[in-house]
Amino acid sequence: MTASSAELPPEPQAVVGPLTRAAVFLVVRVNPGGESVARDLLADLPGLQRSVGFRSLDGGLTCVAGLSSSAWDRLYGSPRPAELHDLPVFAGDKHTSVTTKADLLFHLRAERMDLCFELESLIMARLEGVVTVVDEVQGFRYFDARDVLGFVDGTENPTGRGAVDAVLVDDDGAFNGGSYVIVQKYLHDMAAWNKLTTEQQELVIGRRKLSDVELSDDEKPGDSHIALNVIEDEDGNELEIVRDNMPFGRPAYGEFGTYFIGYAKTPSIIEKMLENMFVGSPPGNTDRILDFSTPLTGALFYVPTAEFLEDPVVASDEPAEPTPEPPAPAPGTSLGIGSLRRSPRS
């Protein structure tokens, strides 16, 4: 390794990117005894993504993998990311959030669903028999990036360098370059929602439905979705996250939903949003959107760097034993050239 390459920062997974037309949100639990298979799959995931993505270079295929607190302990042990923990349940007098027992998140995105479908198929073939599926949602782009409630979603996402600064950890040593992600699956009561006038819906959200312009402070109610989701630090600076929410649904079954997914450099920002929504700010002043939207799942994950996935280096309490030199290959045997997994980096 050259001096210049040693100074390069770790390569993050594709947590920051343009909104796509299709997505798959796959959440699984690793069955006891399946840890090594799951760890090997995570190491091979960048290679699998390249293999599928190369078949459509303009398809924009990416896959972000995250691990929950318990999964990190089982797959990688110590040390661990400083802020990785189970997502709390936020319970107010009227609304209560949901926390789901989960181990791994796979967030697949592309301009075409077939690319997501193919990569998910390869992932599940590798994990067959060693994981239990918690949830699988196929999301789609709805007109001009609107949710099924009819409002544009993700308007306030930071872009460029601002997005990178908002989502990548920069104060946790070996875990710098990673990110935290929280997911929630919501179903909407469209019958009740559609009984509201457009003006009433705008007061629930805090934004104009057609133009996507935010209501003024004088017009915007304190229990509107936007009012309760603006988080500031002690100096009054807004703390940002990157949302990549997607609509989903099955109209024949009366299912209309939004899959919330938010990336941030610290989970405390999104957790504060959830506290404001479900408990209220002040307590009791809860998010009006919860009168029409019900959470079904919720989980928090840490997203390691792409470099870590392909070559995890984790310290342990015991000194590592010297690795013996591998024997020279016998004449005529394969050197493993062209295999999917990369050799460990030195």
Rank of each mutant, 00 (worst) to 15 (best):
E136D: 06
A163M: 05
L228I: 00
T258A: 05
E234V: 14
D218I: 10
M124E: 13
Y186Q: 04
D189L: 12
V230D: 02
Q201F: 00
D189M: 06
K185A: 01
E219W: 04
V133G: 00
E255T: 11
L168Q: 12
R250T: 09
R161Y: 07
G154S: 02
F151A: 00
L127R: 11
E240T: 06
S216G: 15
A192G: 04
D189R: 08
G162Q: 11
G160C: 12
R126A: 09
L215F: 08
D153C: 02
V213F: 04
R243P: 02
R161L: 06
N229I: 00
G160N: 14
I205S: 00
G150K: 06
D189S: 09
I241S: 01
D244L: 02
R243D: 02
E202I: 01
T132V: 12
N176P: 03
Y253C: 05
L228C: 01
D189W: 14
V213K: 09
H188E: 02
Q200R: 12
D144E: 13
V137E: 08
A145Y: 05
D223T: 03
D170R: 15
G206D: 05
E238C: 03
P158A: 12
E214V: 02
A192H: 06
T258V: 15
E234P: 01
A166C: 04
W193H: 07
E136H: 14
Y142D: 08
F248L: 07
V134F: 07
T258C: 07
D171Y: 12
D212F: 01
A166I: 01
R250V: 14
V242P: 11
V167Q: 05
S179M: 05
L215Q: 10
E199G: 06
V148N: 11
G129N: 03
G178D: 07
T159W: 10
T159E: 15
V152H: 14
V137W: 09
F143G: 06
A174W: 08
G139D: 06
D218S: 13
Q201M: 09
G173A: 10
S211R: 03
I226Y: 05
F260K: 06
E234Q: 13
V148L: 15
K209N: 07
A166G: 06
L127K: 13
E232R: 15
L203R: 10
G249L: 10
E214M: 02
V167M: 06
E214K: 07
G254E: 12
L187K: 11
N157H: 08
T155N: 09
G162R: 08
F175Q: 05
P247S: 11
D212T: 13
L215H: 07
P158N: 07
G257I: 14
Y253F: 14
F140Y: 15
V134C: 05
M190R: 10
E255V: 15
M190S: 02
D217F: 04
E128G: 02
E128L: 09
L168M: 11
V130E: 10
F151Y: 06
L187G: 02
Q138G: 03
R146D: 05
D212A: 13
P221I: 08
V213Q: 12
R146T: 15
H225C: 00
D144K: 10
E219H: 04
H188I: 05
A125S: 14
V137D: 04
G160P: 09
